[in-house]
Design a protein around this nucleic acid. Structure first.
Length: 405
RNA sequence: GGGUGGAUACCCAAGCGGCCAAAGGGGCCAGACUGUAAAUCUGGUGGCUCAGCCUUCGCAGGUUCGAAUCCUGCUCCACCCA
C-alpha cells in the first residue's frame, strides 16, 4: 500500500471537503499501518437510466480509492429511490415503482462498470435490509433525529420559507441513507457537496452498531453543458457515459469556456500544472477544450475513438462533410411523376424536422441546402428533384444521402 | 373541517371580453460572425394541402355577435387556520 502522504495527494484532488479531516487522517494512517483497506461507500438511487459525467465525479474518486487498494462499496438505493432524495431539490421527487427501480438498477450497474472495477467492488441494495423492517424498526430510526435538525437543512428551510411542501417521507431519506452506512460499516462516504447533511447523519447512527463514525468526503457539483446549472438529466444539459464518442466530444466542445478548469480537475487525471498551462491567458480555449474532450472520451471509449471524434469535429467545424454520410431512405411513391417532392415534405420525410411547419421555417431561414454545390433552397414552395444519392443538409449538423426505395 | 391562492404552449411566467396562436425569459432550431456545437448579434419556435385554413390557455357545460379572460359544476395542486 502507498504511504499516507502519497495517498492523500491523490485523494485530495478535486475534493471540496473532508469532514472531519482529522478522522480521515486517522483512518488512513491506521489502514496503511495495519494494511487494512478502508471501506468506501457511494450510493446511487436508480431513478433514471443515464449515468452522466456529473455522477462520474464521485465514481472516479471511488475508483481512485480502489486503485489504492481500498474497498469500494456501492449501494444501489432501490428502497431510497422509492422515497426520493430531497437533497438540493426545490421540489419533491416523483416516487418510482419497484419494477422501474429494479430495471434501472441493472442498467445503472452496467454503466457504473465503465468506471469502477465491479469485480473488486461490493454491491448492495438497501432494500435487502429495509425490505425486512417492521414499522417498529422504522420508528426506532426516526427517534434519532429531530424536526429541528431536519428543517435546518438548507433545501428544506428554503422550501418552508417559500411555502412549498416538504413531505414527511422526504425527511426519512437522510436517515435511510445514514443507516446504509451502518449496515455496510462504511469508513468513508463519497457524495456531492449538497449531500453533506445526509453524509453526516450516518455519524450519529453508526455508534448504535458500535461502529466508528464514517468520514464524509464531498466533491463539487459538476456544472452541465450550459455552464450554469448542475449537470442533470432533467435539465437536458448532461453528457452521458454511454454517449457515442462523437457526441461526447461534441458536447464537451459546446461547454462554455468558464467551467473548463473544473472539468479538467474533476473529470481527468491531467496534472494540475499541465491544466494550468493549457488554460493560461493567451492560449486558445478551443485547443484546451480539445485536449479535455480527448481525455474524457478516451476514458469511456478508447484513445483511437477519441482521435476520430476530434477529427470528425474539426471537419464539421471547418464546413467539410463527415467521412461517412448517413443514409436516409425515401420511398419513391412520395415523389411526383417528375421525381420531385416539396422541400418541406422532404425534410420531414427524412426525419430532420418533426413537422412540415418546422421544416418550412428552416427553409425560410436559409438552413436547407442540397447537392454537391450546396445550393440553398429558401423558398418553402420549392420542389426538389430527388435522385438516388442526393445529399441534403439542414443546418450545420444534419446531413444525409438519400437512397430511394 | 374552514379559509385563501393557483392550473396558460417544451419549462418558468404575463394576459383577465374583441387588436390573442397568446407579452417576457429560459431552452431549442436556423442565420451571421468566430477560437468551437464557446461568447456575441439577428430571426424563428402549435399544426396543415400555408398570402389561407384548422386546433390550443386543467376538464365539462353555460352567458355573449365574440371567452384564455365572465358564470356554474368537476378534477387536481399548494399554503394558512383548526
Amino acid at each position: 500500500m502507498l504511504d499516507v502522504a502519497s495517498q492523500l495527494e491523490i485523494l485530495r484532488r478535486g475534493v471540496e471537503q473532508i469532514v472531519p479531516e482529522a478522522d480521515f487522517l486517522k483512518k488512513l494512517e491506521r489502514s496503511v499501518r495495519e494494511n487494512r483497506p478502508l471501506r468506501v461507500k457511494y450510493g446511487i438511487d436508480p431513478t433514471g437510466i443515464d449515468v452522466h459525467l456529473g455522477h462520474t465525479v464521485p465514481l472516479r474518486k471511488l475508483r481512485q480509492f480502489q486503485e489504492l487498494g481500498h474497498t469500494a462499496v456501492i449501494i444501489i438505493g432501490d428502497y431510497t429511490a422509492m422515497v426520493g432524495d430531497p437533497s438540493g431539490r426545490d421540489k419533491t421527487r416523483d416516487a418510482l415503482t419497484k419494477d422501474q427501480v429494479d430495471a434501472n438498477a441493472r442498467d445503472y450497474l452496467k454503466q457504473v462498470g465503465r468506471i469502477i472495477d465491479l469485480e473488486r467492488a461490493e454491491v448492495h441494495h438497501n432494500g435487502d435490509w429495509f425490505g425486512k423492517w417492521s414499522f417498529l424498526d422504522v420508528l426506532d430510526l426516526m427517534r434519532r433525529m429531530t424536526l429541528g435538525q431536519i428543517s435546518a437543512r438548507e433545501d428544506f428551510a428554503k422550501r418552508i420559507a417559500e411555502e412549498k411542501p416538504v413531505y414527511l417521507h422526504e425527511c426519512m431519506y437522510p436517515l435511510m441513507q445514514g443507516w446504509d452506512s451502518a449496515e455496510i460499516r462504511a469508513d468513508v462516504e463519497l457524495g456531492g457537496t449538497e449531500q453533506l447533511f445526509s453524509l453526516m447523519v450516518a455519524r450519529q447512527l453508526q455508534p448504535l452498531r458500535s461502529q466508528e463514525p464514517q468520514v464524509a468526503m464531498t466533491m463539487p457539483i459538476l456544472v452541465g453543458t450550459d455552464g450554469v446549472r448542475r449537470m442533470g438529466k432533467s435539465l437536458g444539459n448532461y453528457i452521458g457515459v454511454a454517449d457515442s464518442a462523437e457526441d461526447m466530444f461534441g458536447k464537451i466542445m459546446s461547454v462554455p469556456d468558464e467551467p473548463m478548469a473544473q472539468y479538467f480537475t474533476l473529470l481527468t487525471d491531467l496534472p494540475a500544472e499541465e491544466v494550468k498551462a493549457l488554460l493560461a491567458p493567451g492560449s486558445n480555449p478551443r485547443d484546451a477544450k480539445e485536449v479535455l474532450g480527448k481525455a474524457v472520451v478516451s476514458q469511456y471509449h478508447d484513445a483511437e475513438a477519441a482521435e476520430q471524434a476530434a477529427a470528425a469535429f474539426r471537419r464539421r467545424a471547418s464546413g467539410e462533410d463527415p467521412v461517412e454520410i448517413p443514409i436516409a431512405y425515401l420511398t419513391a411513391d412520395k415523389l411526383d411523376a417528375e421525381g420531385r417532392i416539396a422541400a418541406p415534405s422532404l425534410i420531414k420525410e427524412i426525419g430532420f424536422e418533426s413537422s412540415t411547419s418546422n421544416a418550412r421555417r428552416v427553409i425560410e431561414g436559409g438552413g436547407f441546402n442540397v447537392g454537391p454545390r450546396r445550393e440553398t433552397v429558401s423558398d418553402p414552395r420549392a420542389l426538389v428533384y430527388v435522385s438516388d444519392g442526393l445529399v441534403v443538409r439542414v443546418g450545420k449538423r444534419k446531413i444525409a444521402e438519400i437512397r430511394l426505395v
